[in-house]
Lab assay of single mutants.
Amino acid sequence: MSGNGNAAATAEENSPKMRVIRVGTRKSQLARIQTDSVVATLKASYPGLQFEIIAMSTTGDKILDTALSKIGEKSLFTKELEHALEKNEVDLVVHSLKDLPTVLPPGFTIGAICKRENPHDAVVFHPKFVGKTLETLPEKSVVGTSSLRRAAQLQRKFPHLEFRSIRGNLNTRLRKLDEQQEFSAIILATAGLQRMGWHNRVGQILHPEECMYAVGQGALGVEVRAKDQDILDLVGVLHDPETLLRCIAERAFLRHLEGGCSVPVAVHTAMKDGQLYLTGGVWSLDGSDSIQETMQATIHVPAQHEDGPEDDPQLVGITARNIPRGPQLAAQNLGISLANLLLSKGAKNILDVARQLNDAH
């Protein structure tokens, strides 16, 4: 009898209710805020589980004197976190989706994509230029951005401005803007500013005609071990179906173009009346040469937790077992079709030249 009692006690200790789920994140304040929001949602869904947040620095956090596009290494903000995932030191990792490459290392998958916040870019102005827009900034004003995508589009749109690289986390960039006289304004992701509670610093939100956004911008991705079915089931509740389908289309477009950090590629997606609209573009580094096109596809946005595919093969690095396969494939095909259209119009040449120029500098 006593033996059975011990077995029952052991089973209770090993039951999922007692389990601590370890969540990996970057150390920056924004990353911690984003991770806290994901953990809060998981806690609400699984009140019996405990969650421990483990923060670590990544290569991208450490190399702050070089433009991201020049470092010449993929997975700048993800490699150390993936290493911890691989060694079973954490069970899942919360990322900004735009930091996750469209091809993940073997053994990993994006197990959830959370509801997207505003994906557009924002302009934050130096205190002396508050009330201005990019259009009304004085001639030769210097605007800071760490992104080739932003610089290429904005140089084309605002030729009277000069664009220079600015690195560091959000706090560091804002301090550089406010305390030094080098920059009249800087460009940042609206979602990051909003998550930090800095709505009052948003001086201008850039519309798609001015600057399309990065693939996955404004959404959070939760990376897990691809074979860890328990954790895949656990994080599945975080999937937002519309965000998922938009981001599958965007990531398929980028992957098929073979774009990345070192080339200016941008997108804009919208879901309306059962249609998914995808606009994508590529630019030369100075913005003088560009190709942009829009395509659409009829896609039914499923309700969360309709029964999805059981075999769960990944699409552009994403596993969404609780979302039907048909809409996911339709979104992926839309991204591939748009990429093929741009490639047929000469996108590869623009991107190759951009890559060579970026590598040469």
Rank of each mutant, 00 (worst) to 15 (best):
L342G: 05
L137F: 07
P127M: 04
A270W: 06
H305F: 01
R246V: 13
L92M: 12
M196E: 04
G221I: 13
E89D: 12
K157Q: 13
M56T: 11
T145D: 02
H160L: 10
S337W: 00
P309R: 10
L92A: 10
K132R: 11
L232S: 03
C114E: 02
I336F: 10
P159V: 14
E182D: 11
R355V: 13
I323T: 08
Q180L: 12
R167G: 09
Q50Y: 13
I113G: 04
Y46W: 13
A226R: 07
K157P: 08
K157A: 13
H95W: 02
K87E: 10
G203I: 03
S28D: 00
T319M: 01
E209F: 15
H83I: 08
V90K: 01
R225V: 07
L244M: 09
N88V: 06
Q34I: 06
A249E: 02
S75H: 08
L68G: 07
I53A: 08
G131R: 10
L170H: 09
K43C: 08
L177K: 01
W283P: 09
H199A: 10
K98D: 00
S146M: 07
V23C: 05
L188W: 03
L276F: 04
K132P: 12
N118C: 13
F77Y: 08
W198Y: 11
T25N: 05
L161M: 12
I21Q: 00
E306A: 15
A219E: 05
G287V: 15
A151Y: 08
E82P: 01
L351N: 01
T25H: 10
S288H: 01
G168C: 02
L238H: 00
A40C: 15
L76N: 12
L193F: 05
E139V: 08
S147I: 08
T172A: 13
P309F: 14
L238C: 04
R149I: 05
L100G: 01
K157G: 12
R150N: 00
Y277L: 12
A31K: 00
H160D: 12
E250Y: 01
G24Q: 00
Q153G: 07
C247R: 02
G221M: 00
H120Q: 09
L174Q: 05
V267N: 15
G203P: 01
A214R: 00
R167S: 08
L188R: 03
A252F: 01
K74W: 03
T133P: 06
G144V: 05
G221W: 02
L154A: 06
V124A: 11
G221S: 07
G308Y: 02
L238F: 01
I291L: 11
L92D: 00
V90A: 06
D240S: 02
A354L: 03
G131Y: 11
E293L: 06
R355Q: 12
P127G: 07
H199Q: 06
R116K: 03
A112Q: 07
E139S: 09
H83G: 10
R225Q: 07
P127W: 14
G144P: 02
Q292W: 06
L76I: 06
S288V: 12
L85R: 02
L137D: 03
T136D: 13
F125L: 11
V23W: 00
A303N: 15
K132S: 12
K348S: 15
G216A: 05
A40F: 07
Q194R: 13
V23N: 01
G346E: 15
Y213L: 03
T78I: 14
A266P: 04
L338A: 15
M196I: 13
L161C: 12
L30G: 00
Q194S: 04
A122K: 04
R173P: 01
L245S: 01
P324L: 12
D230M: 15
G60L: 00
G317H: 03
I187Y: 02
P47C: 06
I54P: 03
H207Y: 15
D36T: 11
E210Q: 06
L276N: 00
Y46K: 09
E242I: 02
I323R: 07
V38K: 01
D91F: 00
S284T: 14
G192W: 01
D178E: 13
R19I: 12
P208I: 13
V93C: 08
V90T: 07
K348Q: 09
V301Y: 09
A249W: 02
S69N: 12
S37H: 12
E310R: 13
I166Q: 05
E117M: 06
K74Q: 15
D359N: 09
F125A: 05
A360R: 05
H160T: 14
W283L: 05
L134Q: 01
S28K: 02
N171F: 04
V265N: 02
C247F: 05
L342S: 07
S141A: 13
L174P: 03
L315P: 10
A40I: 08
L188P: 04
L92S: 04
G259F: 11
R195P: 04
D91S: 08
L234N: 14
L342F: 15
L341C: 06
L170T: 07
I186F: 07
V20T: 12
R22G: 08
A122T: 09
N118A: 14
K27D: 14
E250V: 01
T102G: 08
K79I: 09
D286V: 11
R156D: 07
D286T: 09
G259K: 14
F51K: 05
G236N: 01
T279H: 05
R355P: 15
D99G: 03
D65M: 03
E86D: 13
K27F: 12
T145M: 07
Q217S: 08
T25K: 05
G335L: 00
L161K: 08
P101W: 01
L357I: 14
Y277T: 06
I21D: 00
S337M: 05
K176Y: 10
L315K: 07
A44V: 13
C114F: 08
V142N: 11
R255M: 12
A44G: 12
R149P: 02
F158N: 13
V124C: 09
T78H: 05
A31D: 00
L278P: 06
K132W: 12
P302D: 12
L193D: 03
T59M: 12
L154M: 09
V39G: 07
A354G: 15
G218R: 01
P324T: 14
Q204H: 12
S165K: 05
V267A: 05
S57I: 01
N340M: 15
D289W: 13
V103H: 00
I166K: 04
L285N: 15
V93N: 08
Q181H: 09
A191Y: 03
A249R: 01
A31W: 01
H160S: 10
K345C: 05
L137Y: 04
L30D: 00
E135L: 13
R164N: 11
G281V: 09
L315A: 06
I350T: 02
L341D: 15
V94M: 00
M56N: 07
S284C: 10
